[in-house]
Design a protein around this nucleic acid. Sequence first.
DNA 1: TCAGTTCTGGACATCTTTGTCCAAATATCC
DNA 2: GGATATTTGGACAAAGATGTCCAGAACTGA
Lengths: 145, 145
Amino acid sequence: MFSQTTEYALRAAVWLAESGAEPQTTSDIARATQVPAGYLSKVLQSLGRAGIVHGSRGKHGGFELAKPAGDLTILEIVNAVDPLQRIHTCPLNLEAHRGKLCPLHRKMDDALAAIERSFREVTLADLAGGEGGVRPLCEAACVRA
Amino acid sequence: MFSQTTEYALRAAVWLAESGAEPQTTSDIARATQVPAGYLSKVLQSLGRAGIVHGSRGKHGGFELAKPAGDLTILEIVNAVDPLQRIHTCPLNLEAHRGKLCPLHRKMDDALAAIERSFREVTLADLAGGEGGVRPLCEAACVRA
DNA sequence: TCAGTTCTGGACATCTTTGTCCAAATATCC
DNA sequence: GGATATTTGGACAAAGATGTCCAGAACTGA
């Protein structure tokens, strides 16, 4: 349902939100989030191009969030790597009842709209807090190795 | 977000719900729903194995719903071809806080739960009615060629 | 300047999804 | 029984998603 890439991007973003100002190298993040390092590199590049993270090179380089965690929503992360495609017109390419969706696609788009709404309301800061007694990602991962 | 296969399966199911008792051949359905016939054949086979449709061979053969349209939910169709995977445990394979999800995956699973709930409430009969002034699939497709 | 570190971007490998094609099995009609 | 219509299932092809690898650019510290 959610692509692997989306999952990876979110894990990385949450990790960065937790890491505060310290730039995290690709391999740091890979270790913590259990994402294949080579692929994570690609994902971080996407997030970079989308203006969500910022990478700096050389010693003490790495990735940081490009904005405060409270200003970055889950939706932005998702849309950066694998955009949530709303259904605007019936996929059967017909001109009839322009714009208005048939009952099936109306229902499907409603579901997408609900996800969009719910993801727009949550920022990385909300997730990084560890509210509810459970730390972000998973407890053990948060024991920063 | 929803796979091509899911989309195709739903279109076919809605079409069959509209068609009542008349068995529809694969190519009938393919034409009406604009799905590649060869692939649709595979999708219908999946739906058959899941007990959602029933195919009969030979002249006057084709596919029909295996149950009344009012007894088949969207969720059943979706789960037959591309099961909605809830998130039961943190994907980071850690033993910590067994069962309890971290904030990120809690949020993601909530979204999945909402879809599941909403799809469980809608039957093919609901969609086939054409309520709201818009016929199922798309108007033009319903002009049965 | 030099060595070491890290991102960047491209080429490529692998796996999954989507799509095509066809022979065989089964049903109907004459 | 023979001709035709249709599903069934398998093999294969094409495209996309995921994953690997490496050469080069850019930064840091000495």
